[in-house]
Nucleic acid binder design. Structure first.
Lengths: 206, 206, 206, 206
DNA sequence: AATGAATGAGGCTTCATTCAT
DNA sequence: TATGAATGAAGCCTCATTCAT
C-alpha cells in the first residue's frame, strides 16, 4: 500500500469537497448522488471512499467547515476598539460578503445545511456549535457596550446578538431565492436600525 | 352512485397532506419515502395517487398552502389604524405563533421548503410569491407611515419590509434548531429595535 | 337487481369491445390499461366487469370474433362455380379489404393477436381455429380443382392453401408497417403468380 | 485498474440479450418483467442498467440485431450467377432456417417485434429498415431477371419482392402457431409457384 | 492507492380488480 | 344495474457502497 504524502491526501480531500459543494449547492444533499460527486470530482467511486466513509460524512465535514466563515466575519469586525464602528464594520462586511458572488455556492450549501440539521442530529450539533460561537462573540461585545453605557441594561445581550444573526440568515435566504435582491438597500436599513437602537440609550442620558 | 361527497374528498386530501407534513417535517422531502406517507396516512399507495399526481405535487401543494399563514399573520396585524400599534401587534403575533408548539411542524416544513426552493423551480416560484405578498403589505404600510411623518423618507419601504421578514425567518431557524430558544426575549429586542427605529424620525422633528 | 333487456346487454358489450379495439389496436394489449378502455367506452370500471370477467376475457372475445372476417372473405369468394374465377375473386376481395381503411384498426388488432397467441394459450387456440377454417375451405376447393385437372396432383392442397394465406398475412403486416404500401401492385403480382401456377398443369396437357 | 476488457463487456451484453430473448420469446415484451430478465441473466438489477439504459432499449437493440438474419439469408442466396438457381437457393435456405429449431426463439421474438412496431415508433423504424434492405436486394435481382428476359416487364420488381417476403413472414407465423407445421410441403408449393411464375415469360417467346 | 463493475435493497408509481353505495 | 374510490402487489429503475483487480 503505497502511502502517500499528507499534501496529496489534503488535495484529494479538497477535490472531493469542492465537487460536493458544487453538486450539493445546486441540487441539495439527497438529490445529489454519489455518482454526481464522482463525476464532478473526476475521481472514481473507490477513491472517494478512501477519503470519506460515507456520503453523510462528506455532508458533516462540509457542515463542520461551513460556519468558520461567519465566525471570521464577526471576529474581523470586532477587532476595532470603537463599538459603534465595530457594528458598522460588521454590517458592511456582511453586506460585502453577500455581494461576493463567488460565495453564492457556499451560501446555498449553508441553507441546505440549515434544513438538513432538522433531520440529521450530527449536522444539527454542528450548526448549533456554528451559531453559538458568533452569538457568544457578539453578546460579549454587546455586554461590554452596556457596561460602557452605550446600550440600555434592560437588553438581553444574547437575545440582541441572536436577532442580529437572524437578520443575516434571513437576508441570505432572500438573496438565495432572488438573485436580483438589492443587498445595498438592505444594508442601509439594517445600519439605520442599529444606529437608532444604539442611540436610544445615549439619548436617555441628559 | 358512490361518487363521493366533496367533503369526503377534502378530508382525504387533508389526511394525506397531514401525513405528509408529519413525515416531511421530521425527515425532509427526499428522506421521506412515499411508503412513509402511505403508512402515516393509513391509506393505500393507490389511494394517494387518486388525490395527487406525484410526490412532487404533494410538496408543491404544501408549499402553496404554506405561506398563507404568514400572510394572515401580517394582514391581521395591519388591520388597526394606528401604525405604531400595528407593528407592535405584528411582533406580538409573530412571537405568539412561535410559541405555539402546534405549529412547530409547519415551521420545520417551511424550512425544508426554503431549501427545496433552491433546487425545485416550482417551489421557488411559490416561495417567491409567498414572500412577495407580505413584502407588499408591509412596505405599503411603511410607505403610509412615511407619509404620516413617522418614518424618514430616506428609507426604502420595501427594504425595511424585507429586513423585518428576514428577522422573522432567521428566528424561525434558531427556534427550529433549539427548542429551548427564549422567544420572549427575542420579541423584546425586536420590539425595542423597531421602537427605536420609528422614534428616530419623530425626534428629528422639533 | 333490475334485469335488463338482452338488447341492452348486447349494446353494452359492443360498446366495451369497440372501445377495446380502439385502444388495443393503437397500443397493444399490455400497454392498454383497463382505465384506457374505461375512458374510451365512457363506462365505469364496475360496469365493464359486469360484462367481462377480466381484461384477458375481453382479449379472448376479440380473438374469437376476429377471424370471422377472413372466413367470410374466403367463403364469399368460393361461391362461384368457375374455379379460376373464384381465386381471382378471392384476391380481389382481399385487395379491397386491405384498401378499406375502416378495417385498418381491426387488422392492427389482428397482428397484436398473432403475437399474443405466442404467450396466451387461449388466444393461440382461437387463432388456430381461425386459421384452420379458411385452410379447410381453400384446400377443399383446391382439391376439387385437382380433380377437374386444373392443377397438378402432386400439389398438397393444404400446403397451397396455407401458402396463399401466408401471403395474405404477410401483406397485412407490410401494410400495417407502412400505410403508403401500394396494395394494388401487390394484387397484380399475386394474381399473376396464381395465374401462372394454375396454367402450369393445363399446359402439360396437349 | 479493473476497467474490464472489451470482450468482457461484449459477453455481459450477450448474456443480457440472450436472457432477454429467452424471456421475450416466451412471454412477450410487456409480460416479461425486468425481474424475469434479471433472474434469467443471473445478473443483478444494477448490472443490467450498466449495459442498457432501459427495458425499451433492450427491445430496440434486439430489433436492431434481429433482421440481419433475413438480410443474410437473402444475400447468401443471391451470390450465384444463375437467376433461377438463386431463387431456388433462397427458398431452400428459408426452408432450412425454418426447420432449424435453434432459431425458433428468434423467430418468436421477431413476431413480437412485428406487433411491437405498431405501437413503438423506434421499433417501427427498425422493422422498416430491416425490411427495406431485403426488398431492395430482391427487387434488384428481379429487375435484372427482367432485363435478361426471364420475367415479364409488366411486373413491378419491388411488388414481387414484397410478395415473396410476405410469404416468408406468413409462413413464420403459421409455424410459430403450430410447431407441427409441415415446412417441407410449404417449400414445394412455394418453389412450384415461383417456377410457374418464371416460366410464364419464357413460354411467351417462340 | 486507485479503479469502476457489481450488488440488491428500496424508491416512486401503475394497474387489474373489488365492493360499499 | 351502475358507480368510482380503494386496494396492494408488482413494475421499472436508482443509488450508496464494496471489492476484485
Amino acid at each position: 500500500m503505497p502511502k502517500v504524502s499528507e499534501a496529496h491526501r489534503h488535495n484529494r480531500r479538497k477535490q472531493i469537497l469542492d465537487a460536493a459543494i458544487e453538486c450539493f449547492s445546486h441540487r441539495g444533499f439527497q438529490r445529489t448522488s454519489m455518482d454526481d460527486i464522482i463525476r464532478e470530482s473526476k475521481l472514481s467511486a473507490g477513491a472517494i471512499y478512501l477519503y470519506f466513509q460515507s456520503k453523510d460524512q462528506i455532508i458533516e465535514t462540509l457542515a463542520d467547515e461551513r460556519h468558520d466563515r461567519e465566525k471570521q466575519l464577526i471576529q474581523q469586525s470586532l477587532s476595532q476598539g470603537d463599538w459603534t464602528e465595530n457594528l458598522r464594520l460588521l454590517v458592511r462586511n456582511f453586506y460585502e460578503s453577500l455581494e461576493n458572488s463567488a460565495e453564492r455556492k457556499e451560501r446555498r450549501l449553508g441553507i441546505h445545511l440549515w434544513a438538513e440539521a432538522l433531520c440529521n442530529p450530527k449536522v444539527l450539533r454542528l450548526i448549533r456549535r456554528g451559531i453559538n460561537q458568533p452569538v457568544k462573540l457578539l453578546s460579549q461585545a454587546i455586554g461590554e457596550a452596556q457596561v460602557d453605557g452605550l446600550l440600555g441594561k434592560d437588553i438581553d445581550p444574547e437575545a440582541a446578538a441572536r436577532v442580529l444573526i437572524a437578520m443575516f440568515h434571513g437576508l441570505i435566504l432572500q438573496q438565495a431565492w432572488d438573485d436580483g435582491t438589492d443587498i445595498e438597500s438592505f444594508a442601509v436599513v439594517v445600519q439605520a436600525m442599529i444606529d437608532a437602537y444604539l442611540s436610544t440609550e445615549s439619548r436617555r442620558r441628559p
